[in-house]
Amino acid sequence: MFGFDAALISDVLASSVRLGTPIAFAALGGVFAERSGTYNVALEGGMLSGALGAASGVFITGSVFAGLICGLICGMLTGLLLGGLVIKLRVNQLVAGLAVNILVAGLTAFGARLVFGDMAGGARVEGFSTMEIPGLSSLPVIGSAFFMQDPLFYLLVVVGGLSWWWLFRSNAGLDFRAVGENPRAADVAGVRVFRMKYVALAISGALAALGGMHLVLSQVYVFTEGMSAGKGFIALAAIILGRWSPAGAIAAALLFGFFDAVQFKLQFSNPDVPYQLFLILPYVASLAALIFLVGKTRAPASVGTAYIREQR
């Protein structure tokens, strides 16, 4: 195949980061949700709603910043809808997440027709272009991969760092993790459990939305129906692979991005091998990660269960 070709490696790394960023945002969102005790299967829906929000925001106002705000609001609403279902009504978290996904898939397809009219699927919008970090971008091999990306990738790095600090180094983060591990103990200690859970899902939805926005504003500059194409589900695997830590989840997501990038490369360099073999690579990698890490990881203790205050 290919030897140690620095330019090629740098190229693959750059596209790994680009393809992995949406998954990384969603996985980071998933970490917040699961740390607070909720499986967010609606990451996929969060991505889609963010993508449509951003595309229509930019399309209507012409401002990328307005698009970003629109997308974030859509993502938060998706998260809060899930929150209402699982926290208030105590619907099974997986069912609620899947239901939100189905709803968002339909609503975004419908919304796209409303906003873009006949152009649906073809309305190009402004987005972010590459932003070079002076000095660092000229580093060999990793320069173009990590320091010649779009602003959203840098945002991911910043948000990832802040998340780590907040979750593991702040008092509020300790409370937050307590909610996910043992909501009753947290409640008794005076933590506002329900509010924490809602905030977590709003953050989770907003982060997933950022993933969708990266697709629209930094990759293809157009919204298409179902464009998240299962990335929200791969993000769920990245959370487990990243052991529920922000840095781990981002790293795992970038690893899936790497498999995706390699898949593209291999597809072009090996036209004789059926291309489907490469297409399944990211999924098989996710599956393998899930299978081989079983038993070595532990999810937050209360994840998947509704907290019922009046129950023993």
């Binding site: 939100v100 709803l103 898939a105």
Partner: peptide, 14 residues
């Protein structure tokens, strides 16, 4: 719009 029906399906599940 055909996509309305898809959205309605989601609303029904919820």
């Amino acid at each position: 719009e055909g996509s309305v029906v898809e959205a309605i399906e989601g609303i029904i599940v919820i």
